[in-house]
Design a protein around this nucleic acid. Structure first.
Lengths: 213, 213
DNA sequence: TGTACATCAGTGAACGCGCGTTCACTGATGTAC
DNA sequence: TGTACATCAGTGAACGCGCGTTCACTGATGTAC
């Protein structure tokens, strides 16, 4: 125990006290600024005020650190989405708010977002599988959200997984175009939130329109 | 003129004869395999069978080569989209086919696609502007396609630019998720073409549904 | 409370590597006479 | 047709750099007695 040294920014002396967290934080910031490819262990160590070798006390290497960032990012994203979904309002309103939370996360945490979609989680064999656990988690979360949000039969005969994929792809497209600064903006043009809202509405509407009830 | 040496693969002797094209081709392949960040001048030169220094006879440097690849890719993409749009069928069919052509391009030419969306075209000041000419071109192309494809009033009071953005974002999202191998697939799940078709339908339908006529 | 010691989180120097880029050069090409 | 020469596309060696990673080490911490 070193209670007088547990805060995030009290680096004094030989031992950092909070190095692992500090490194993850540094990585998150650098990835946000320069992308995954531009992220460097040496820079992260320098920012934190530590020799590059110190990193290896906490991570097996560069990949492991990136994977940890991705893991944290995904946890944070999932929490945000769940929170949005739990809010008040009609099912459609809550589902729409969840989409907005997705876009907001991508904007506020570009480092996390890039790490999530770039870093491939390592399988038990040490290699990146085609479909990692996070992929299934993310997709399952979305489908579950749809199922639990919309009452039985609300989507008619349309598979909720279909709508989920549709909305996810749209969200991801909007988020990445916006992050790259390639989403045209200007007077009379919709914001990314407008785009997502209308898109979700159209998708859900398209599904329910085909429903018998 | 060296007519006996103009083919793509007749490297013999001191002069390559077709080095610029060969380098662009090599870059396209390497980017497709390893992404922009994994692309290396040295590798490209080695693949073509030339010293790394030879590259500087044709390009100012790495960035210039990448920019050239992006430029070619964009030209090819635009040609494919225009071709799809000119085909037979109803406006909606042709517009849908254009979307499919977009997905096919992203799948068949991942190197081009990555270069287009990664490389920022350089402005007159040598810096990358927030909105490059290609961005405006791409978006303008899409809007023009919508305007010229759908008869006046078909989209009702909805701004074609709105629908264009929507469809573009969805296409981009589907294409990038699929390229990253993160689009869940399996029995009962839609293909990316299914996703795009249904999405476009929902968007256009959503627009026309709100239309007075 | 004081001391010896195991543990562990750091250091800093060094490594091998591959990168993008430069430079003086050289061999092939095409042209003027 | 033959020859001198300007042009240009290549060579290959070298550069400085920053990277990820390793290693023997050392200073601080926490604990057993």
């Amino acid at each position: 125990m070193r209670p007088w040294r547990s805060g995030p920014s009290d680096r004094r002396g030989y031992h950092h006290g909070n190095l692992k967290e500090a490194l993850i934080e540094a990585a998150r910031r650098f990835i946000a600024e320069r992308g995954i490819g531009g992220f460097t262990l040496v820079d992260a160590a320098r920012l934190v005020g530590v020799s590059p070798a110190a990193l290896y006390r906490h991570f097996r290497g560069r990949e492991a650190l990136l994977e940890e960032v991705a893991e944290r990012g995904f946890t944070e994203l999932a929490a945000r989405l769940a929170r949005a979904l739990r809010g008040p309002g009609t099912p459609l309103e809550r589902f729409t708010r969840m989409g907005e939370a997705y876009l907001t996360f991508a904007e506020e945490e570009p480092g996390y977002y890039a790490a999530i979609f770039e870093a491939r989680p390592l399988g038990p064999d040490g290699c990146a599988p085609a479909q990692g656990p996070r992929d299934r988690d993310a997709f399952g979360l979305l489908v579950e959200a749809l199922r639990s949000t919309f009452p039985d039969g609300f989507l008619g005969s349309v598979d909720p997984r279909f709508v989920a994929l549709e909305v996810w792809a749209l969200s991801h497209g909007i988020a990445t175009l916006a992050a790259a600064g390639r989403l045209p903006t200007g007077p009379g043009l919709p914001t990314k939130y407008d785009l997502l809202r209308a898109g979700v509405l159209a998708m859900v509407h398209g599904a329910t329109a085909r429903a018998p009830g």
